[in-house]
Write a protein that binds this DNA or RNA. Structure first.
Lengths: 215, 215
DNA sequence: TAGATTGTTAATCGATTAACAATC
DNA sequence: TAGATTGTTAATCGATTAACAATC
């Protein structure tokens, strides 16, 4: 059996931005929020918001909108952000350290519980309360702590080699912050997080703007 | 006149990954590279690679492929990565510091030449050789150094307010690493760089995999 | 009630993929 | 030459948007 078809990736990517708004509404004690309002805030089409939210199984009230509390629960559940997932940072450089310090992740169920590096001076240290282990210890620490996600933040030159170690350790999900397309077995899930593709969009937009600024 | 229609965003996002491969080919002294090979390496369809590359204006040789050198130049030019753009980090926290240390950006023409923060203890310091100024100094430093891009890495709670300061300082391009949808005048270009949307895709994929693992 | 909003079904739009002639 | 690859034109696919009945 093939992996069942995922729902639209663009929709999934938009859901976290709805969650930010819903969280705000929750904090403000609002009971209901309408798709129209969400659309306005995020500069999207109301119909797109309704379609996206429908994915989560939420049912709204005509004329009223969606229950803020239910919506919060529905989005979190749909994204699987309501269950804790243990992760490790592989490559405790600047970016790796910054990610270890990101409190936001915990709200999404992502608990970073170990860091790995090859640099002897870093091993045994803690960053933001997280222990750094030698890369070789990956299989053992993975077993002991039950790590299921590897956040890959090594230099590009080491990416493929380290990815193979991650796979050998039995980790099947990699959040890849390097610009290298990893060659891994098909059962391993790789999510590419590429700053340069976002930057490319920015620079092209700046270029287009200079060519013909609006009104 | 409205801002002219950009070419397909998905294509633009893929171009940097081609560039990584082309750079490698260049380092290895290869003269030509075919769309077929690029497609194989990145697990894309050859026709998609050809279509994307065509955007840059590159012309290939049937049976041979594309000149590696020409392709490198064409992609870089299309993305405007062949001209230097001066940027500043606004918010010198963990992520901001990590980005200041990112050597990769220089290859894409992005020169980070100043950092800003409100934290008195950080002001006057240097991170990775980059001076940290008080946020109030933004207009002046912007003028003196010719900064055109603000990389926004403040806490979410401060995002909107700081974005307004950025706009008032006359900066018209913001690379936004916060999860806040910024309200800015229409002539300001905002590129959202949202880790949580990538993470959402990862967690949904993991969930789908668990529901029905392949083979 | 009147009217704003939801959710469904249909239409449009844009991106991806297919087919194939041109070519070196 | 034979055959792999490019680039163009057409077909398909999927996501976005429109239309509108249902509803509270």
């Amino acid at each position: 059996m093939k992996t069942s078809k995922l729902t639209s990736l663009p929709s999934i990517r938009r859901l976290p931005s709805y969650l930010v708004l819903v969280q705000q509404a929750l904090d403000e004690g609002m009971e209901y929020i309408s798709g129209t309002v969400i659309a306005q805030e995020l500069e999207l089409e109301p119909i797109q918001v309704r379609k996206d939210l429908a994915l989560t199984g939420i049912v709204g009230k005509p004329r009223i909108g969606y229950s803020v509390k239910d919506l919060y629960i529905a989005i979190n559940r749909f994204l699987h952000w309501d269950t804790e997932k243990k992760a490790s940072i592989v490559g405790a450089g600047h970016l790796g350290q910054a990610l270890m310090g990101n409190k936001e992740f915990l709200k999404h169920g992502l608990r970073i519980c170990a860091g790995f590096d090859v640099e002897p001076s870093k091993i045994g240290k803690k960053f933001h309360g997280i222990d750094i282990y030698p890369l070789d210890a990956l299989p053992q620490v993975k077993r002991e702590l039950g790590i299921e996600i590897a956040i890959l933040t090594v230099p590009s030159t080491a990416a493929q080699e380290v990815a193979e170690q991650i796979v050998r350790a039995g980790i099947t999900a990699i959040w890849n912050f390097t610009n290298v397309k990893l060659k891994v077995p098909s059962q391993v899930i790789v999510q590419q997080e590429d700053l340069s593709s976002g930057y490319a969009v920015l620079t092209v937009k700046i270029g287009a703007f200079r060519a013909s600024p609006p009104g």
